[in-house]
Nucleic acid binder design. Sequence first.
DNA 1: GGAGTTTATTTTGTATGCTAACTAAATTTA
DNA 2: TAAATTTAGTTAGCATACAAAATAAACTCC
Lengths: 137, 137
Amino acid sequence: MDSYEDCIIFLLAKAYQRGHAELKKRLEPFGLTPLQQLILAALEQEEGPSAGEIGKRLVLDNATLSGTLDRMAEKGLIRKESDPSDKRMLRVRLTPKARALSQSLGQARQESNEEILSRLSLEEKLLLKRLLRDLQV
Amino acid sequence: MDSYEDCIIFLLAKAYQRGHAELKKRLEPFGLTPLQQLILAALEQEEGPSAGEIGKRLVLDNATLSGTLDRMAEKGLIRKESDPSDKRMLRVRLTPKARALSQSLGQARQESNEEILSRLSLEEKLLLKRLLRDLQV
DNA sequence: GGAGTTTATTTTGTATGCTAACTAAATTTA
DNA sequence: TAAATTTAGTTAGCATACAAAATAAACTCC
């Protein structure tokens, strides 16, 4: 029987933990969290998605999103509009404040990635990404 | 600028998320969570460690451990004894109930690992583990 | 066209995971 | 040895994450 040190889930947890902490630290000056940054990045690729669409794209529970979107709206990063044609749905839009942050946030993400991956060669980086994608679904 | 889909932290988060959910589901019948199972596994390798020693071994915050150990004690999986020679410290010990579960838990962990890694070849599995270990500090 | 069903989001409750502040005990040091 | 510092653990507070229940709006189907 493998010990927990060989458990892939343990290894994933610790690698994720490190990456998350690294990015969190770098995002702190901008006043948002890794998840919030991720949601902003998704909003840049899609105009006015509903909460459900964001959740599907980012593989996130609706319940998790609900609170996070509220916190982001409070900080003035997004606006939550009600869809006129289906009042059950939201339409989430970026504010100018969020757009102004976009560059800096992308850079923070990039830097964190480089920091995390610094010990790997280019081939290893690509391989790791491929393997992690293979774990999905 | 990379999009978030290429972000290694995002990929790690989603791979971890899937592994965690898989193991959680398999542990549910035994009434404990992935973290609690992990702590039990660590306790099998070390007799009566303090909370701090467990935290160091598992790379876990003391604050996180404190609540989790309480929940495990409530479920009768561990006992929290005070170290007589240093009353600041705990000595955490497995109960017979926890020892009786050990086999089944190890098997659940093993099965989850195989499920997660099922799409990878043997070489890829080993490579992935190596790469994930390289991401640690 | 209204009852029942489905869909989108929110709420509630539990479990991590972290920081910061706090308590208690041990150690250092002046 | 008394004061200052360090160490171990807990508590409080915030942010994920998910399941299950609740709400509200839209849709189905007779």
